[in-house]
Simulated assay, not measured.
Amino acid sequence: MAEFEYPQGFELIAGVDEVGRGPLVGAVVTAAVILDPNNPIDGLTDSKKLSEKKREKLAEEIKQKALAWSLGRAEPEEIDALNILQATMLAMQRAIKNLKIQPHFVLIDGNRIPQLAIPAQAVVKGDSLVAEISAASIIAKVSRDHEMEVLDKQYPQYEFAKHKGYPTKVHLAKLAEFGVLPQHRRSFSPVRKLLENE
């Protein structure tokens, strides 16, 4: 990991990241993780740089070794009502609130900070620079991928396990062929256009 200057004087630091801002279906999922300095985890990096197998293994290790971890989410209805940025901020607030130990400081991947009662800092490319954010990105990604696999079993014709809900050619073709599901985000352009044309 590249050098990152941690904020000084804070004991419990949580990392927060989100997965699923781009997909057309399902929740945006966030995770918050407070790592244990006495129980380090090797191989933490941006979840997108890891193979699925490695992510799954690390997710289990994080859950066992972290001082605290939690998930937060915003559902498709909330995304449609608020917009994806505001829904992501809400999901991040929920992840932090769900931690069984409240952190003294929060490091958030990206360039935006949700409204919080505790000090926080946004870190651009934080999932590659900050171990806590990497851990959160792994937990969030594994969790959301599992949700897509469950959805895939309910609606195999959409092939959600393959594209995880992102607007790939396959997903757009299936959407056109089979129509919009309750789990689709209605405010997202490809879905909205289909509904307008019905």
Rank of each mutant, 00 (worst) to 15 (best):
V191P: 01
M1K: 14
D127Q: 09
A14H: 08
T88A: 03
D36E: 12
E61D: 13
R185W: 02
E177G: 06
E78I: 15
W69N: 06
I79S: 07
A95T: 03
Q8C: 07
A74D: 02
Q86A: 11
K54V: 11
A136Q: 12
A91L: 12
I133L: 09
G110K: 10
Q93Y: 01
V150F: 04
L12S: 11
V33A: 02
L172P: 06
A95P: 02
E18L: 11
A27L: 02
D127H: 06
N83R: 12
G110L: 09
K53P: 00
V29F: 01
S47T: 05
P190S: 03
I62H: 08
S187D: 02
E56F: 05
V16P: 01
N39H: 14
M89W: 01
D152A: 14
S51K: 15
S189M: 14
A173I: 07
Q183R: 05
D109H: 08
D36M: 08
G179H: 01
I138K: 12
Q157H: 10
A27I: 04
A14S: 14
H146M: 13
V28F: 00
F4Q: 10
A31D: 01
D80F: 00
Q8T: 14
E177P: 00
K65N: 15
V142E: 09
H171D: 07
L90T: 12
N98I: 07
E147D: 14
I62Q: 07
A74E: 03
V106W: 04
P103R: 06
I133K: 02
T45W: 02
A122Q: 10
L35P: 07
A14Q: 07
P119M: 04
V106D: 02
A74S: 15
E149V: 07
L99D: 04
I138F: 07
M1C: 12
G15D: 08
L107Y: 09
Q64H: 12
I101Y: 10
G126P: 10
G9N: 14
N83A: 10
T168R: 15
R186E: 10
Q154Y: 01
F178L: 12
G20A: 04
M92Y: 03
I34K: 03
R21L: 03
E61H: 09
K65I: 04
Q93A: 02
K193W: 00
Q157P: 13
V142T: 14
Y6C: 00
I13F: 13
M89H: 10
A120I: 06
